[in-house]
């Protein structure tokens, strides 16, 4: 029997061990009551029973706004400043799968330098969770897209390693662990089934309702673990240099589909269709792969309660 069981009483010591591998971050709650991932100065800050953070862990890999290039004395140079080692503790399976999806986008050729460096310095420690009303993941699925996964049971956690780094973590924490049966292998997930692209032109009455109520606030994609599209803007400096930034964007904004003199997605309905297509059907080269990992954030944060998944089910009877 391997030593893979961590008693709850030893969790704090385990967290201290994790610090050896980088700056420790985990789920906490802000003064105003928002759940978020942030640095864990004190284990008491840890909110292990959190449901979902407002912003998914993508913020560690793809910051909201980032300087990507600097222009000075005649040439452009890398704007990305480098990253330190970071251990992210207590990530749910949906968010782990979200990162796995972003990896497919940003680690594909040509590799995104900033993303790749941050990713290589990020240690991911997953944890099992209890779905709430907003979640729509398949229960019992567990993501293996992490270094170490903690399956919470009555008096502790069953640990399973999914990478060499995970194994190194287990070794480093060996004296805190006890023998126990390894967690039963579970199907890796969760992800929604891909949808038929033609569904975006369906007669579903919700299309019109969503198009008239969406306020294009951007919250759904800001908070989505797999929304990654970005805008790029450049600002000159007085010295003749410049800075190019990239910033999260949203396909529900009017500017997303514009070109000089035309807009290929002129109305909100077109933009919702586009969003549907990207979320549930995928673009080159991820065509046929749905990116929605079922975290439930978009529905929870939408001021008008839009849930695009409802469009994948046949309309209900009483719909006018």
């Amino acid at each position: 029997m391997e030593k893979t069981f961590l008693k709850t009483s030893r969790l704090n010591q385990f967290l201290e061990t994790l610090r050896l591998f980088g700056e420790l971050h985990g789920p906490t709650v802000s003064e105003s009551g928002v759940h978020r991932f942030s640095q864990l100065h004190d284990p008491a800050e840890l909110q292990l029973d959190y449901r979902r953070t407002q912003i998914p862990p993508k913020k560690y890999l793809l910051p909201f706004r980032e300087e990507i290039l600097h222009y000075a004395s005649g040439s452009y140079s890398e704007g990305y400043a480098g990253a330190g080692d970071l251990v992210l503790f207590g990530v749910h399976s949906c968010d782990l799968e979200g990162i796995a999806y972003l990896d497919r986008v940003f680690l594909a050729e040509p590799v995104d330098t900033g993303y790749a460096t941050r990713r290589s310095r990020l240690t991911l420690i997953g944890i099992s969770c209890e779905p709430d009303d907003f979640c729509f993941c398949t229960e019992g699925m567990e993501s293996s897209s992490c270094d170490l996964f903690l399956d919470a049971v009555a008096d502790g956690f069953r640990l399973s390693s999914h990478s060499a780094r995970g194994t190194a973590l287990l070794t480093a924490a060996e004296q805190l662990l006890e023998e126990g049966p390894p967690p039963a292998p579970r199907p890796s997930g969760p992800r929604l089934l891909p949808q038929d692209p033609q569904l975006r032109f369906s007669e579903h009455p919700l299309w019109r309702r969503f198009a008239s109520t969406c306020v294009s606030c951007g919250a759904c994609s800001v908070c989505c673990p797999t929304c990654y599209c970005f805008d790029v803007r450049e600002y000159p400096s007085l010295s003749g240099g410049g800075t190019r930034i990239r910033e999260w964007d949203n396909c529900l904004f009017a500017s997303h589909g514009e070109v000089a003199g035309a807009n290929f997605r002129p109305d909100r309905l077109d933009r919702l269709r586009y969003r549907f297509l990207h979320k549930y059907c995928g673009f080159t080269p991820l065509q046929g792969i749905t990116s929605c990992v079922g975290c439930g954030r978009c529905k929870e944060v939408c001021p008008v309660g839009i849930d695009l998944r409802e469009l994948t089910a046949p309309p209900e009877r009483e719909e006018r």
Binding site: S30, A219, P303
Partner: peptide, 23 residues
């Protein structure tokens, strides 16, 4: 300068503020 055109909510949510309208 390049135009940006998103509402206050976009930055608000991304900075992990509490939504006063919803919450």
């Amino acid at each position: 300068p390049p135009a940006r055109s998103y509402p206050v909510c976009t930055e608000c949510r991304s900075h992990e503020n509490l939504c006063l309208l919803l919450e």
